[in-house]
Design a protein around this nucleic acid. Structure first.
Lengths: 215, 215
DNA sequence: GTCTATATTCGGATAGAC
DNA sequence: GTCTATCCGAATATAGAC
């Protein structure tokens, strides 16, 4: 029955397309609402309205509010892990840390909502992603600490505690996303321009690279 | 009627004592619950249980959940404003910024809940304290930027953008409170010891003071 | 000033028609 | 796969006895 098979494939294909598109719509809306209202303050109704779908559809694609939230948090974590590659294969701290700061500042600009959701999740004791902290993040951190320690041993930077350097990199770059509203208020109520983002990235990079004696 | 007057004074005095003590109990519990669950996730019942009072008493002292939250946020803001004095009257960046970092790291350690509540409030667009950002915080920021600029003009530090230096100071110090759970997880699940707090403060201070060319 | 009982609203989740 | 109508639990807030 080639005919019905073809129709079935097409139908199935369309269904998959609709599913993927709707899931994306829902996840984008959810990221924004969770960031702006917190998990407890977010409502499925608000997310549905922002996604342009009836509330019941959300429960069709994501069984519970928590399942939807979990996916949002996972998405952000993966984006940050990708940025980790900037760190690897660098000859020294100037290239490695410079690239990492640029990558993370770029993420802060393009995914401010995701960064805020992550921050809130950690502030609340990481009820949903504690396992990621203990496995993936811990391994990642120890790997980069080893790289930094090697740079220190090779005389490419001052003997800074690698752990606190990493915390400083996370804190300074994510601050531009998480506290973006405060920064905007102190910028006469205006969002940072392209030029201001470049200046911010440059300032952060310069202070840190000088601070660790790499330049 | 000296007798009744005395009794009345005593009664009134006791009432005031009870009021102050209960308000303090409620505010401490509220700070913790708001920090760990967010405004939307916090419940008056949970705060009441943690304060050891019946729920209705909370509504006697604070008319609404939002009024209670507002007081918590204001408390934190005042604590940070006090720390601002570390900045003033310093001969140069080594003393001024050094003292400010120490003061803010100390607050991150002693008031982690308050710091988290503030962070969440800002992340949500500062619905409650937007006026503080536009008045008090803006004035404070401009004042310190002028001080930093003077240090630059006097050749006491490199020509860093004062604004981004301030953001870095806020980001790095508050990170130890707001992301304390992540830091603890990466510290084998242990809270930082006295010694580790000193090392963290020292690392932050050293990197920043070197980074701005002050040492 | 304290506390029990309750009114009322709101939001997550689902049933069931289409 | 979509969506309306609805259930039900939970949480804020208050009434009113003590």
């Amino acid at each position: 029955m080639p005919d019905t098979a073809r129709i079935s494939r097409i139908r199935s294909g369309r269904r998959t397309d609709i599913r993927q598109q709707n899931e994306r719509l829902i996840l984008e809306a959810a990221e924004r609402v969770f960031a702006e209202a917190g998990f407890g303050g977010a409502t499925m109704q608000l997310i549905a309205d922002m996604a342009g779908l009836p509330k019941a559809n959300l429960h069709y694609y994501f069984p519970t509010k928590e399942a939807l939230y979990r996916r949002v948090v996972q998405n952000i974590f993966e984006i940050w892990l990708d940025a980790a590659s900037s760190f690897d294969g660098a000859a020294g701290p100037v290239e490695g840390i410079g690239a990492y700061v640029r990558a993370k500042m770029d993420i802060s600009r393009r995914h401010p909502h995701g960064s805020k959701v992550w921050a809130a999740e950690v502030m609340h004791g990481a009820p949903v992603i504690q396992d990621y902290l203990e496995t993936t993040l811990r391994a990642w951190t120890e790997g980069r600490m080893a790289v930094i320690q090697r740079w220190i041993d090779e005389g490419k930077m001052a003997p800074i505690d690698p752990r606190h350097l990493l915390y400083m990199l996370w804190a300074t770059t994510q601050h531009y996303a998480d506290f973006g509203h405060q920064i905007e208020t102190l910028n006469a109520g205006e969002a940072l321009s392209d030029r201001q983002w470049r200046e911010a990235t440059e300032s952060v990079t310069q202070i840190i690279l000088r601070g660790i004696g790499a330049i």
